[in-house]
């Protein structure tokens, strides 16, 4: 089953569309980063009491910011689209009915698809992170990673990680960010198990993800935020602290794992009980 799903995925155009979109995104980020660093630190500091300097705009900072935006918006959308088309796509094409004429359980069908989609997500996250680091190295140049508190909430206090240590942290960020991506993926599987049109399932998954993302950023929903998975998807930023708060980091990871598993369980329940017409 898994080999079959890998074959289907490799023949699909969706992964290549995702890669192309990420390349365009990185090119734009590189341009924006250059202009920002040039204008904001090139002697235009306005205040006497400030921390601004040119040295912290390097390839590692570029990686952090590019990866952050990619993980918060782009990758979840690609994965929500992927998950949304899985069950609903095969239902719509009639492939699922044919598959189920064989001695294959619905559990096996769903879990095989989810495993392959998850591996695709992990590879996409890792590839994106690796390419971003390489672009940072060749186009900007590495150095120590210095982060300051600001609107993107990368850190709550100034942090400085030596280059080698920062690269080690990026290795840890890969699985951490991949876990975050499993939640929109599992969420889209739930919708895909509910709907029979892949277009409807994918578009609903993406729409609801964006709605939750916006809600988690609107001040009125301060009390609701902690319970939305979109509020925790950037938890991997905790790995960029000089002293990582491991208990806090693991609690955030557990929140995401809880969401992903719950969505998958509900998807499984719905898929197992529904009748294939």
């Amino acid at each position: 089953m898994i080999a079959l799903e890998v074959l289907k995925l490799s023949r699909s155009r969706r992964p290549w569309i995702a890669v192309l979109a990420l390349v365009v995104f990185l090119a734009l980020m590189l341009l924006g980063f250059w202009f920002y660093a040039d204008s904001r630190t090139g002697g235009e500091v306005e205040f006497r009491y400030t921390f601004e300097n040119r040295s912290y705009f390097n390839g590692l900072t570029f990686t952090v910011y590019s990866f952050y935006f990619g993980c918060m918006l782009l990758l979840p959308i690609f994965l929500a689209t992927e998950g949304g088309t899985q069950l609903a796509g095969e239902t719509s094409s009639g492939g699922l009915r044919m598959l189920l004429t064989r001695p294959v359980s619905k559990s096996r069908v769903l879990l095989s698809k989810f495993v392959v989609s998850s591996v695709y997500g992990v590879v996409l996250v890792g590839g994106f992170l690796g390419v971003t680091l390489l672009i940072g190295l060749f186009a900007v140049g590495w150095g120590d990673l210095r982060l300051y508190p600001g609107v993107l909430q990368m850190t709550a206090s100034p942090q400085r990680l030596p280059q080698a240590e920062a690269l080690g942290r990026f290795v840890l960020i890969w699985p951490a960010a991949s876990l975050a991506m499993l939640v929109p993926l599992a969420f889209s599987y739930l919708l895909s198990a509910w709907m029979r049109s892949p277009v409807n399932a994918a578009s609903t998954a993406v729409s609801l993800f964006l709605v939750l993302h916006v809600i988690s950023g609107v001040p009125f929903f301060e009390d609701l935020r902690p319970y939305l998975f979109t509020s925790h998807m950037g938890y991997w930023r905790g790995l960029l602290q000089e002293a990582v708060d491991w208990p806090g980091f693991l609690r955030d990871a557990a929140k995401l794992a809880a969401n992903a598993t719950l969505f998958l369980a509900l998807a499984h329940l719905r898929f197992r009980r529904r009748e294939e017409g």
Partner: peptide, 30 residues
């Protein structure tokens, strides 16, 4: 400067206060 505020999408350019905040945060713990 929206530290911990959770407004990931709404990245207003509050660069000026960020400068002042970080000047203090480099010397004293928040």
């Amino acid at each position: 400067v929206d530290i911990g505020g959770g407004r990931d999408l709404f990245t207003e350019d509050e660069h000026l206060d960020v400068q002042t905040y970080n000047y203090v945060a480099e010397r004293l713990a928040d």
